[in-house]
Computed example of a mutant assay.
Amino acid sequence: MHGNRERNPVTALKTGPETDRETSPADEEPADEKIDAFCHILPRACADRLFALDDVPALANLRRRVMDIPALVDLDVRFRQMDEFPGYRQLINLAAPPAEDFGTPRSAVHYVRMANDALADLTAGHPDRFAGFCAAVALTDVDAAVVELDRAVGELGAVGVQIYTHVQGHALDEHRFAPFWARAAELDVLVQVHPCRNATWPDYPAERRSRYEIWWTLGWEYDLSAFMARIVFGGILERHPSLKLLIHHGGSMIPHFSGRVGPGWDQLGSRTPPEQRADTEGPPLSKRPLDYFRMFYADTALFGAPHALRCALDFFGPERVLFASDSPYDPEKGPGYIRSSLADVHRMDLAPGERAAILAGNLRRLTKGRLTG
């Protein structure tokens, strides 16, 4: 141990006072099934490991972020929060930081094995709370990641896998990641995509660090959108059209800028001088770029912005949108984003069947009977 490290959430986290709030549509809805398709947890063994690593700079800001969120670690706190929402269960995944940031590739492989065992135990022990889990993998060692994905799905019962928008700054359309994409497609599992950057990613080339937490508020959305573009133009969806890629935060920027994504990328190369032609060349695509972007799935984790959800629904269609909250990272440290996400869904002009599909049916269809209950 080095210096004065942060408090360990296993022993230090306490439940804070309830936050005053107004009544929302989510408060009065019936006990219809609701499965949160993108929310986070930190099993106790993982929390211990996270707070033991004082010499990994990439973990510093995320340790600070999680250390005062009781529901990440304390199940009693988490379950009390969930009780507010009748019929509500969660598809859990491992809270950030990415496993790739845990020192050496060998250390990262050890961490994800421990994490997946813990996530499987939580799901098996609380099927009334957790409908399933998405496995963690460490893509610094692609072969080991494929082995762990097979183990998590085949032995532990994972219904999907969570990845991040890059691997230590490397884009996921690099050739070395091809075996992972092939195996994820073969296993036919849900692939949750989470953004990833920190304050060391500057806002402008002349600066050394991001200011005002722009790296999070706007940077994460750019990360998601750039990831989608590289998956499209890198030919990943061309080679594996059955991939089920769930993009966090409503599909990020793509629905809102579809006018640029569509006609703009129909003219790919027109803005690039001939000597930079290689920057626009990739594998041949059989469809318009816009058509590939519509092949992604999006969640409802938009934090009380119904206009943004409406845009995502218009772009992807109700059959490709899944209810999710990003809990427990709201100002209330748990229930706030669940409440606002449910309220947003209920504000939409949807047929009852469409609403039920978003709340749980689409996830059940994509996971093909692998959920508990």
Rank of each mutant, 00 (worst) to 15 (best):
T23V: 11
V232G: 00
V77Y: 00
E84L: 13
D121S: 08
V137E: 08
Q90L: 07
R339N: 09
T23L: 13
D150L: 15
D36E: 08
G334Y: 07
Y337N: 00
G157S: 03
A136M: 11
D36I: 06
P205H: 08
G219A: 04
D20W: 03
E221Y: 14
D314W: 01
A26G: 09
L119G: 12
E148F: 11
D349L: 06
D349V: 11
R288E: 02
R310I: 00
F316G: 01
S258L: 00
D141P: 12
N8L: 13
L302T: 04
L75Y: 01
L309F: 04
A52T: 08
L190G: 05
D188A: 06
F180M: 08
I358T: 08
D150F: 13
P274G: 02
A145F: 13
D291V: 03
D266F: 02
R209F: 04
A199Q: 07
L237M: 15
F180G: 04
H256I: 04
E275V: 11
Y88T: 06
P273K: 13
M295P: 01
D314M: 00
V191K: 12
A357W: 01
P30Y: 09
I231R: 06
P127K: 08
P318A: 08
D349W: 05
A351C: 04
A351M: 11
P241V: 14
W216G: 14
V137P: 02
Y111E: 15
Y212G: 09
P202I: 11
R89Q: 14
H307G: 09
R64E: 12
A343L: 08
A343K: 05
R211C: 09
L13Q: 08
S225M: 12
P9G: 03
H110Y: 06
I254R: 04
D326H: 09
R151H: 13
T104N: 10
R65T: 10
G334Q: 03
H40Y: 13
R78V: 01
R176K: 07
Y337P: 00
F38Y: 14
E207S: 11
L366F: 04
L139S: 15
H166V: 13
I35W: 07
L290E: 10
L13T: 13
S242N: 15
